[in-house]
């Protein structure tokens, strides 16, 4: 109960942070359905490089996207230690392949800062803003951009 009260007072948002090619990214927890370990996918023909294929999520066929590749940070060679963040946007469910999930944290919504210029240009399009938390820079992804068809996504 106390947490809820705090959240309302300070206008906090909850984000899930994860590492992609050594950098910290995050998305709003509302988009995350679950986190699963990597298991091999079935290749989908005629799809962009960053689509790793499709996986079976409890009887549903969902595509898996190599987030690093998608953000222009180079393709991932997935191992058993990699994880898939299952995200839901609208009526679509998509798995995002990342190195590791770091944390679920509550951050003040109004402390989101504009993306600094030093971020690589290719990934900047997908970033809504950044948080500085204990010396580390956490990029908040604009999941709509990541999924957007116009940019070659889903």
């Amino acid at each position: 109960m106390q947490n809820v009260a705090e959240l309302e007072q300070t206008n906090q948002r909850e984000i899930v942070s994860f590492r992609v090619s050594g950098k910290d990214f995050s998305i709003d927890i509302g988009y995350v359905r679950e986190i699963r370990g990597w298991s091999p996918t079935t290749i989908l023909p005629h799809t962009p490089d960053y689509v790793k294929g499709v996986m079976n999520l409890r009887g549903n066929v969902i595509p898996v996207m190599d987030l690093s590749h998608r953000l222009g940070l180079g393709p991932t060679e997935p191992t058993e230690r990699h994880v898939i963040v299952i995200t839901v946007l609208g009526d679509k469910t998509v798995g995002l392949l990342v190195e590791a999930v770091s944390d679920i944290m509550s951050v003040p919504a109004d402390e989101l800062k504009p993306t600094p210029d030093l971020a690589s240009t290719s990934s900047r399009d997908f970033v809504e803003g950044v948080y500085m938390i204990e010396d580390s820079l956490i990029r908040v992804m604009d999941i709509h951009q990541v999924f957007a068809r116009e940019t070659g996504g889903f």
Partner: peptide
């Protein structure tokens, strides 16, 4: 049969 279109879209040949 499991649809692909729900979560991805049509893939040619599939």
């Amino acid at each position: 049969i499991k649809g692909l279109a729900e979560n991805y879209g049509h893939v040619r040949g599939i």
